[in-house]
């Protein structure tokens, strides 16, 4: 088995009295596609934010890619995010006044230096070669999500996080996006953690964990 890219030990996150994530022990091997399921408020988004370095745990240990996230400063976390993590959101969160290429270049800018040619080829790779100069408002939901994917993988992250990436998409677009992610993963060999409440989407993964009220209740391995 491949070495673990994510290692948590008693990972806890509480907001005041409310405990969003009860102590969680989890190991994710490198290259795995992990689906996280549970209904809203089950702590799955909290888990994703913690792993992505957007949030800090209240207790426990969290190691991602050999880096102890608890030891990093605020700017250190930002550096970790830009070099290690790509995130796809349900709401897309594209910058409305930038074109598709420029949205990808924004990620390059924070990572190192913007490179337009590379951003173009990334969009071509997700099948948006014809919509480079369009603003997010002029793109369909599926196209927007593909821009998000291009943006998430542009810096070659080791870890791709998806926060219900298909939540706003119809079935056809969902399949398209998932197929795309699968293809890209085969090429780039990143680890995927995908939060979803859609059973069908979860089946694309290698393993599914079920969270309920901040507790890991069930674990399921896909046969494929």
């Amino acid at each position: 088995m491949a070495p673990a890219i994510i290692e948590t030990n008693g990972l806890t996150r509480s907001y005041g009295d409310i405990c969003a994530l009860k102590p969680l022990d989890l190991q994710v091997p490198e290259g795995e596609w992990l689906s996280v399921m549970g209904h809203s408020g089950s702590g799955k988004s909290t888990f994703m934010n913690l792993v992505g370095g957007l949030d800090r745990p209240t207790a426990g240990s969290l190691k991602v890619g050999g880096e102890d996230l608890l030891m990093l400063s605020e700017d250190g976390l930002a550096r970790f995010r830009r070099e290690f993590v790509g995130i796809i959101f349900q709401q897309h969160h594209l910058v409305p006044y930038l074109t598709a290429v420029e949205n990808v270049m924004l990620a390059q800018y924070f990572h190192s230096v913007p490179d337009e040619a590379e951003a173009r080829s990334a969009l071509e790779r997700v099948g948006l070669g014809h919509r480079l100069k369009n603003r997010p408002g002029e793109l369909s939901g599926g196209e927007q999500q593909r821009v998000c994917i291009a943006r998430a993988i542009i810096n070659s992250p080791k870890l791709l996080l998806g926060d219900e990436p298909t939540g706003n998409l119809d079935h056809k677009s969902t399949v398209m996006v998932m197929e795309l992610l699968k293809e890209l993963r085969a090429e780039e060999r990143f680890t995927v953690i995908m939060v979803t409440h859609n059973q069908e989407v979860a089946t694309w993964g290698d393993r599914t964990i079920y969270l309920d009220d901040g507790v890991l209740v069930r674990e399921e391995r896909m046969r494929s």
Binding site: D75, R82, I87, H93, L106, N155
Partner: peptide, 11 residues
């Protein structure tokens, strides 16, 4: 979003 993408607070 900019912060999530890895922009530091200063940037």
């Amino acid at each position: 979003l900019m912060k999530a993408m890895g922009g530091t607070r200063w940037e």
